[in-house]
């Protein structure tokens, strides 16, 4: 089975090809996905002598993350899935972020305007992702005993966690995490692929201001 995995959620654009559970090629560039994502996909497929028709699944990071990056990644994955008639695996950013972390961990990332996306992962379950002001999230994290792990996508909030031993930050989702997430997440087919939109979770700032 050949899977293509796309991540355009952050400053790095990552393309992977997985062949029968093993990573066959990887490309990560810090560049504008609007221009280069498709050439990057074509080069990755060339590297392993595959044609697009040989793919059996496409996985894509659906967010949260860069608004435009996600629009590009999700549109690309949806269209490839539609043309090639193959299933699409929607990976949530925080799922991939926390995948190889210690059992109880908070995955967090910047949601703009001092707000924070977060989800709590334990060995057996994960909480639904939500958005709160960063101070409210820190309050909840501090009330946990024993202390929990925190992993942030980006480093916007690092200055809030200087006293936390178990805080770590990353600027990209690792290939291993993307592979595991692509493997563990149920795939979508048919109409549900066409209905897929990025997991922005919160409305745009324009809509938020309008509703205040």
């Amino acid at each position: 089975m050949q899977s293509l995995v796309l991540d355009t959620s952050g400053p790095f654009t990552t393309v992977l090809v997985i062949s029968d559970g093993k990573l066959s090629t990887l490309s990560t560039v810090q560049d504008r996905p609007a221009e280069h994502l498709h050439q990057q996909i074509a080069s990755c497929l060339d590297d392993v002598s595959l044609r697009p028709q040989d793919l059996s699944r496409i996985a894509v990071v659906i967010g949260p993350g860069s608004w435009t990056g996600l629009n590009i990644g999700v549109t690309t994955a949806k269209t490839l899935s539609q043309v090639l008639e193959i299933p699409l695996v929607p990976i949530r950013t925080l799922d991939a972020l926390t995948i190889h972390c210690a059992p109880r961990v908070w995955g967090i990332m910047h949601a703009g305007r001092h707000r924070c996306y977060y989800a709590v992962y334990t060995e057996s379950s994960k909480s639904e992702m939500d958005v709160l002001p960063i101070n409210a999230v820190i309050e909840q994290i501090d009330s946990e005993t024993p202390p929990v792990g925190i992993i942030e996508y980006g480093e916007t909030f690092s200055h809030h966690f200087t006293n936390h031993q178990h805080y770590q930050t990353t600027d990209r989702l690792s290939p291993e995490a993307l592979m595991t997430a692509a493997d563990e997440t149920p795939a979508l087919e048919g109409e549900s692929v066409k209905l897929l939109t990025p997991a922005y979770l919160q409305p745009s700032h324009v809509e938020r201001d309008a509703s205040l």
């Binding site: 994502l37 498709h38 028709q53 608004w67 435009t68 629009n71 549109t75 690309t76 490839l80 043309v83």
Partner: peptide, 16 residues
């Protein structure tokens, strides 16, 4: 922001 969506879809069709 709007153009990149159509461009991503078109490139995907061209590629596939």
């Amino acid at each position: 922001l709007a153009l990149v969506v159509g461009v991503s879809a078109a490139k995907s069709i061209a590629l596939a």
